[in-house]
């Protein structure tokens, strides 16, 4: 099986007036199947930019990026969108749920997008997952009727429902209090272990990062492995 993520000489720069900001500089690393890798760094270190590159949300200025053997750096924006649909899952700090969709509809959406199963099967899968995450009685509630922790659990359910080989999580507990954050954290890690999903987790929380298999540190746009 190919290495899920391979990065070679990856760079991303942004023009800023007369200068250029090097948000990511010459990053190189690999992530293996089933690994939980944490990327840490202070604010402005470039970790969010690196995450957007790894997830195909943005394209690099230079370098190469292979995800599941596919050269993401060579793909067009539409090709990357289709790739994300089939192979990637996401959990965001601000949950990023569809405000007008119910919890069930939010979780159904990736399955509908993939179109691999029937609607009835999709509902079954989504319902089961939400129930598993303790939201069996909140299926038809909109995010505005839920607490932060519940919303993040819906987001996690949405991320895992298609059983993606790779999942990206950007500060998944950043908007939650300690207690709720720990609950969410546990759920995330439990699901990751059960499904052997490769997870790349971006966080500034070192305590959370220590629970990962590996820690990579971003500083000034450069990446290094943390012991």
């Amino acid at each position: 099986m190919s290495i899920p993520v391979t990065v070679k000489g990856l760079s991303r720069s942004f023009p800023s007036g007369e200068t250029t900001i090097q948000a990511v500089q010459d990053v190189q690393f690999e992530v293996h199947q089933g690994e939980l890798v944490a990327i840490v760094g202070s604010s402005g270190s470039g970790k969010s930019t690196l995450l957007s590159l790894l997830a195909g949300l943005d394209s690099p200025s230079a370098g190469g990026l292979w995800v599941l053997g596919q050269p993401l750096h060579d793909m067009s924006e539409e090709e990357r969108a289709l790739f994300r649909r089939q192979h990637l899952g996401f959990v965001f700090q601000s949950f990023q749920l569809f405000a007008e969709y119910t919890a069930l509809e939010n979780v159904l959406f990736p399955l509908e997008l993939q179109g691999a199963v029937s609607y009835e099967e999709a509902v079954q899968t989504a319902t089961a997952l939400l129930s598993r995450l303790g939201l069996g009685d909140r299926l038809h509630h909109k995010p505005s009727k839920m607490s932060g922790g519940e919303q993040q659990r819906v987001a996690i359910a949405r991320a895992f429902v298609t059983q993606p080989p790779i999942l990206f999580a950007d500060e998944p507990t950043g908007n939650l209090d300690n207690e709720t954050g720990m609950v969410v954290e546990k759920l995330l890690f439990d699901l990751q272990r059960e499904t052997a999903t490769t997870v790349i987790l971006v966080t500034h929380d070192l305590e959370l990062a220590k629970k990962a298999d590996r820690i990579l540190e971003m500083s000034g746009g450069r990446l290094s492995e943390r012991a």
Partner: peptide, 14 residues
Amino acid sequence: RNEIAIFRCLGMSR
């Protein structure tokens, strides 16, 4: 706008 960004993130084509 944000919802559309999420659509794009989750893989919906233009």
